[in-house]
Amino acid sequence: MADRRQTTEKNMRTMFFIIATASIAVLFLIMLFLFKEGLPIFKTVSVKDFIFGKYWYPTSDPADFGIFPLIVASVLVTAVSGVISIPLGVMTAVYLSEIAKPRVGQIVKPMVEMLAALPSVVIGFFGMVLVAPFLQRVFGIPTGLNLFNAALMLAFMSVPTICSISEDAIHSVPDALREASVALGATQLQTIVRVVVPASLSGISTGIILGLSRAIGETMVVLMVAGGAAMLPRSPFDPVRPMPASIASEMAEAPVGGEHYYALFATGIVLFVFTLFFNIVADYLAQKYAQVGEASL
């Protein structure tokens, strides 16, 4: 009887372990298929020409497969969105965890979470039909579908990520540190800037990196709002074509097993490597400084 119970117990454990490895398996399959379908393009183009080539004319004859303008577009859109989303997200987190009265916080926090829940296609649609004409009129530019508009929309998609992770980090700073600071005659702002934020910096950085990672991988917004021109932009109001937009818009026309198809998967590899890098850095930060906030015994 006891033996049978032990065997069952052991089997359950093994079963749960196997299922738990599903995430790794999926991740592995994703990589496997990206490489399987992406690597053949390098029979036609060298890795260097693919990544640094300035021309993306996948359907011309002969075709050009240079994704440099797409990479630059992705990086720029993400960077500009970060300029907006990082201060906005961190400041909102500080407000929610340190300043807001509980009742106000209970209203604002769900709103930030709802912002995260808005489908990306709706945000893209909003950027297209309302923000674009607005920008066009205000700045007198030929098209409102451009780098800046896309970055603005992406910023509001990454704010919730940055905000909620930062808030958790700030929340985990022990009250003893706040009390110590206040008892020395520091104002609340001084306590926040000199004690609370430094003590939660690793968590805040993790949030920022994951927010940026979300922005660089986001597809629908850049597909609908960035303008779609595969060229190096000269100003923030130029249309661009970030990597996800290129993949999403061209995959329907690219015949399975053709060069264009392979090139799009190879673009997927580059995009994947970018986000993988962001995530590993975030993971490293979260692990390395996990204990910093705990200053007491």
Binding site: A183, L184, V195, G293
Partner: peptide, 15 residues
């Protein structure tokens, strides 16, 4: 609070 300082139960140095 500057005039009336405080030492707490658990040592709470800043990091």
């Amino acid at each position: 609070r500057r005039k009336v300082g405080m030492v707490f139960q658990k040592p709470n140095p800043f990091p």
